[in-house]
Design a protein around this nucleic acid. Structure first.
Length: 337
DNA sequence: AACGTCCTCAACCGCTGTAGA
DNA sequence: ATCTACAGCGGTTGAGGACGT
């Protein structure tokens, strides 16, 4: 006998709940408590299926539900937990008192996901999008100072490394380029070192796993990045709960999105210091509210400001004279040993 | 004011996991 | 071991409000 759909009975109402229905449901649950959803609507005098009643209660009528906009704090937690748990909305909701999985899911899909996309961050992997970032950084590195980046090594590494590391490497190379183009004394290179090196190994070990033979681990030749590669590849892999706890504990120190934001911050500072990356960034500098001075995060007063800044960041121009075929087709592949 | 488009979010749908018979 | 009922989960939908023309 197959399972009968819970809502196919005649006369059962669907759609938005009326205040009267809410009242009936609330009154019934206050007296009898939640549960036994199958029989609840009949006993409560509701022409709804049990599933609809349960959803209405858990997502809307429950007294401990917190309504209203998500705070920045909550938003941070959602992003960090999502980077670990993925679309496990109920698990995320369990760590956000007063918020329902449905609410978090909606907020993710309508706000956070879009913002991450505009920032050039893949909302699934929580890493910079290769299609937006890597090309700009690689090209910039090559155009600005071809000797800076060992392209042959990088292309060789691309075969061996997963995308996440390559993205970080390209980001590092971009910063190195900015740094070396006009002001080699500034500390962006070290900054990248410290930021990557201090990334908690707990965040998501899968993002940093190499697919390379063990004897090649130390030979990713991206200037300013070499030293930290080994650290990441050797990181331990805590259990899921340990990861969550670690991330929450370290929330105010360094987090995954924070790293992206810090990178953005660094790029923004570099821009303000006339470090010669105009073709990479056309970020307007007039807004006094671009960065919160007390935070590493690019979290200015309004969502719009945050989004516009981050979307501007990845605008770049490709010189017409650049011949992609020449660059990418004539580089012989040599495995790194 | 009227219309069209976009955005938000409550609610639904379909599936999975699990307990109990 | 199998079947059934039920709760819960994640994905999707669509009504209605906001906004732009």
């Amino acid at each position: 006998m197959g399972r009968a759909p819970c809502c196919d009975e005649n006369g059962l109402k669907k759609g938005p709940w009326t205040p009267e229905e809410d009242l009936k449901l609330t009154n019934y649950i206050q007296i009898h408590g939640p549960g036994n959803w199958r029989s609840l609507p009949k006993n409560a005098g509701l022409r709804r299926c049990g599933k609809s009643c349960r959803l209405r209660w858990t997502n809307y009528l429950r007294p401990d539900i917190k309504r209203g906009r998500f705070s920045l704090e909550e938003e941070d937690v959602i992003i960090q937990l999502h980077s670990i748990l993925g679309n496990k909305w109920s698990a995320i909701a369990a760590r956000l008192p007063g918020r329902t999985d449905n609410e978090i899911k909606n907020y993710w899909n309508t706000h956070i996901r879009k913002r991450l996309l505009r920032m050039g961050i893949d909302p699934v992997t929580h890493t910079p999008r290769l299609d937006l970032l890597d090309m700009s950084s690689i090209l910039r590195s090559m155009l600005g100072n071809p000797s800076l980046l060992n392209m042959q090594g990088l292309l060789g590494a691309q075969v061996l490394m997963n995308q996440g590391l390559l993205k970080l490497a390209s980001t590092a190379s971009l910063l190195s380029t900015i740094n070396n183009d006009e002001n080699p004394n500034l500390a962006s290179q070290n900054f990248v070192h410290s930021q990557v090196a201090t990334t908690p190994p707990s965040l998501d070990s899968t993002q940093f796993q190499f697919q390379m033979p063990t004897n090649q681990t130390n030979n990713v030749e991206v200037e300013g990045f070499l030293g930290t590669v080994t650290n990441l590849s050797c990181s331990s892999s805590p259990s899921g709960d340990d990861k969550i706890n670690l991330v929450l504990q370290q929330k105010n120190q360094v987090d995954l999105l924070g790293n992206h934001d810090v990178l953005v911050h660094s790029l923004y500072n570099a821009k303000n210091q006339n470090m010669g990356c105009d073709s990479v960034m056309r970020t307007p500098v007039s807004s006094p509210n671009r960065l919160n001075s007390s935070s590493n995060y690019v979290k200015s007063g309004t969502e719009e400001e945050r989004e516009s800044f981050c979307s501007d960041l990845f605008e770049f121009e490709i010189p017409e004279s650049l011949d992609f075929a020449d660059i990418f087709c004539n580089v012989p592949y040599t495995p790194i040993n």
